[in-house]
Amino acid sequence: MSKIKTHILVTGASRGIGKAIVESLDSDNVTAVGQSTTGENGLIASDFSKDGAASQLWDQALERLDGRIDVLINNAGLFEPNPLAADDWLESWNRTMTINLTASAELCRLAVLHFQSRHEPGRIINIASRAAYRGDSPDHWHYAASKAGMVAMTKTIARAYAKDEILAFAICPGFTMTGMAEDYLASRGGDKLLADIPLGRVAQPEEIASIARYCALDAPPSMTGAVLDANGASFVR
């Protein structure tokens, strides 16, 4: 008798951590679909800066996955500088919040309702950031705030719906070798920042992907609500 496949939706899957997560889920017992803004390479196109994008993505993912999603992994995020004196400071704040937090919240809501309607277990993994606890640069108030919101949302979901066998986990990477992090390291002096990481290097996307895969498929239910750090001991709690 064949095992029922686990159906997984991954956002921000075109590169970096998201792409590594999708690749880590390539197995006989998992079917994963991914999202990106432009929809290249078979991903679902969804621009989270647009109203209704999250719900449209959910519907398209359900269609691809035969009406059932078992795991949601929110990885899509925006990391752009927003200098304090910028004329468009509020616009930039709102854009980052919309993409990083509001779209994730919309998808979490849809996932919880979906799991409840099916009376089946489900899992949510939110990729947050070390910045949720440590903060970030003076140009990244919005990013840190959005990721702190994501962590708080994850804990709330875990506490509220454990009784329904709906589990929620947050992963908080430090610097990870993606396109966004490479640009940031270069702009702020990579050697100086690396000196602040006891491990002596930034994380690789595959490392974060392995944590996400574990949470999606293997983590025991008693772990729900856990926030998992992966920052080379640059910030320990």
Rank of each mutant, 00 (worst) to 15 (best):
L199H: 14
G189S: 11
L107C: 00
R159M: 14
Y184I: 15
L199W: 14
I157W: 02
V202H: 11
A148M: 15
G189D: 13
I125Y: 00
S146L: 04
T102A: 05
H114L: 01
E120W: 01
P138H: 06
A170N: 12
G200I: 09
A132H: 03
L110E: 01
A148Q: 14
I127F: 01
A144Y: 10
S129D: 03
P138D: 07
R123V: 02
W141F: 15
A152R: 15
A103T: 03
G149M: 09
C108M: 03
P173T: 11
L113F: 04
G189V: 15
A144E: 08
G122V: 00
D164Q: 09
I157H: 02
I127G: 00
V202W: 12
A152F: 13
E207I: 06
T154R: 04
N100P: 03
S104E: 03
A162D: 14
A144Q: 09
Y143I: 05
D196Y: 12
C172F: 12
C172Q: 13
H142R: 10
Y133D: 14
R130V: 07
F115Q: 00
A145R: 11
A103W: 00
E207G: 06
F169M: 09
R134M: 11
M153R: 05
I208S: 05
K155Q: 14
Y161R: 00
Y133L: 14
C172N: 14
P198T: 13
A203D: 13
I125R: 01
I197S: 10
W141C: 10
I124S: 01
T176I: 08
L107E: 00
L167E: 05
A162P: 13
R130M: 12
T178A: 08
R123S: 00
M150A: 12
A132L: 02
E106H: 07
A148D: 08
R188M: 15
I157D: 01
M180Y: 12
G190E: 14
W141H: 11
I171L: 15
G189K: 11
P121K: 01
G122E: 01
G122L: 02
